[in-house]
Structures are given as C-alpha cells and as structure tokens.
C-alpha cells in the first residue's frame, strides 16, 4: 500500500475515534432538543461533573466500571432533574428563555466543579489496557477500538430503543405532537423528563471516553460541546442517527484538514468542521438527515 494512502487511512481512523466523542455529545444534544425544542448548552458541563464524579469514586477505590455506572446514573438524575425543575416551567415560553437558563446551568456547574475539585489536574484511569494493533500499516490503539465499539453500540442502542420499544415509540409520539399524545393517554411531560435524563447519559459518556486521554480540567468539555453542536447541526437537530453520522464527519474532516491543509494545522482545527457545517446548511437548512419540524405553539 502506498505510504500516502496509509497516512490518509490513519487520519480517517483517528478521525472516527474522535468523532465518536462528538457523536455521543451530538446525540445528547439531539435527544434533549427533539423532546423539548431546547438546545441544552449545559450538556458539556453536565458531562464534566459526571466525569469528575467517576474519577472521584475511582480515586476512593471503587472499581472503575462501578464508578462509571454510578456516574451515568447520576447523569440521568441530573438531566431529568434539570428538565423537571428548570425547563418545565419555561415550556411554551420563548425558546431564548430556556437557552439562557441552560447557559446559566453551564456556568453554575462549571463553578461547582471548580469548587469541589480545585487545583491540580487529575489523571483518569485507562478504560482498556494499552495495546497497539496494526492493520495494513494503520495503527489502531485499544482506546481507538473502544471508541469505535462504543460508537457502534450507541447507534445500535438508539435504533433499537426508538424503533423497537414501546417506550421509545411513545417518546417519539410525544415529541412529534405533544397535544395529540395526551389524547391517547401519554403524559408528554414525563417522557420529556426521561428524554433529558437519557440525553445526559450520552453527554456523560462523551466525557468519560475523553477523560483517559487528557488531564481532567474544568475546561475540558467545552471543545467537545462545540464539536457536538457542529455534529448535531450537520446531522439534523432532531435525528439521533444524523447526529452519529455528523459526529463521524466532523471528526474525520477535522483530522484530514489539519493533516493536509497546512494553514489549518493544529491551532485552527475547529475551523474545518465549522466550514463543513456552514456549507452543508446552505444546501440542507435542516441538516443532512433533519426534517422540517412543525413549530411548537
């Protein structure tokens, strides 16, 4: 295989791995958005708190899987709680109100995190033993394999949940037409709260997947939130599968651009996906897989 092609493949594989983080965050954004029509800017910091919590539990001696599951459960409670307490009263108010409240939650959670876990940067334990495999000259670390496996798992889980479970179907019905759902005995409010809880789990997964490859800081989730917003917008804000494809596209574009476009390098990495989103939206204003959603009144 020509060396250039190997470099290209390597960048694509690494891009998919990064993309799976963005995909998890994008899925989180989409799940919250399609249930309540709110872009939840606080998701990144919700993930931050959960990631620190998992770190803390592990540092206290909990087995890593237990720490992670506990953090995901906490994420669900946090997401559901924020919807129930802060978002429900704002339903049917202008969407900007909810967005501003979400930004407020962003700041509060970030500060809370800095207060509880001040100072020194922390190292998150590895999720899988380090291993370096090579396929046709392309290096694939075990972390990368894990990320790709998680990505596939997310896609399968979402597909199964929304297509093949009664609960998933009722959630889709409630977001499609909340007024009408009431007439068949669905209580949309309950399902919206549940949707935000699930959304927070996906966000927390993005944080926990990212954590082992960096040092934990209170700023670590911000870029993931931005990339996730790019991916969600690209895929379509109401389609979780679009979010996954969007995540991969953003991850791959980012990596290829910083390899092949010298003026982008590593400092301007985020510019490439933003340009991609911009161009895509010119042609498909609702995202690649988005559909026009009837305005909520």
């Amino acid at each position: 295989m020509p060396a250039e092609f190997q470099v290209f493949l390597q960048q694509v594989v690494d891009g998919i791995a990064n993309g799976s983080l963005y995909a998890a965050m994008a899925v989180a954004i989409v799940l919250a958005h399609r249930t309540t029509g709110v872009v939840n800017f606080a998701l990144g910091e919700m993930a931050l708190v959960c990631t620190f919590l998992a770190w803390q539990l592990a540092a206290w001696g909990a087995p890593l899987p237990v720490a992670i599951i506990a953090a995901l459960v906490f994420a669900f409670v946090l997401g559901a709680g924020i919807e129930r307490v802060l978002m429900r009263p704002l339903r049917n108010k202008p969407p900007l109100a909810s967005a501003v409240v979400a930004l407020g939650v962003f700041l509060v959670l970030n500060q809370v995190c800095a207060l509880i876990w001040p100072g020194a940067q922390r190292e998150f334990p590895a999720l899988v033993p380090a291993l370096n495999l090579e396929f046709a000259g392309v290096r694939i670390g075990s972390e990368t394999l894990l990320l790709i496996a998680v990505l596939a798992g997310q896609a399968a889980l979402l597909w199964w949940f929304f297509r093949h479970t009664r609960l998933g179907l009722r959630m889709r019905a409630a977001s499609d037409n909340p007024e009408s759902a009431v007439y068949i005995g669905i209580e949309p409010n309950r399902l919206f709260t549940l949707g935000w809880g699930l959304s927070a789990i996906f966000a927390a997964m993005a944080g926990i997947l990212l954590a082992p490859s960096i040092l934990l800081t209170t700023g670590m989730m911000f870029p993931i939130l931005i990339y996730g917003l790019c991916a969600a917008t690209l895929g379509g804000l109401n389609n979780p599968f679009g979010a996954i494809v969007g995540g991969i596209l953003v991850g791959v574009t980012e990596n290829l651009a910083s390899t092949y476009l010298p003026f982008i390098g590593s400092d301007l990495r985020i510019a490439a996906p933003l340009i991609l989103v911009f161009i895509a939206l010119l042609f498909r204003p609702h995202g690649l897989f988005g559909t026009v959603q009837a305005e909520r009144v």
């Binding site: 179907l169 019905a173 499609d176 037409n177 009408s180 007439y183 068949i184 669905i186 559909t291």
Partner: peptide, 19 residues
C-alpha cells in the same frame, strides 16, 4: 380531537402502536 392530530413523523403502523 378536531383536526385529526395524528403523529405526522411516525408511520401509520407506529401511530397505532404508540397507543
């Protein structure tokens, strides 16, 4: 209800199953 109110984004089969 007046004005139908089906779930436009769900298939016919899904509209029925959602009940």
């Amino acid at each position: 209800p007046q004005g139908r109110g089906t779930f436009g984004g769900l298939t016919v089969g899904e509209n029925l199953s959602a009940t």
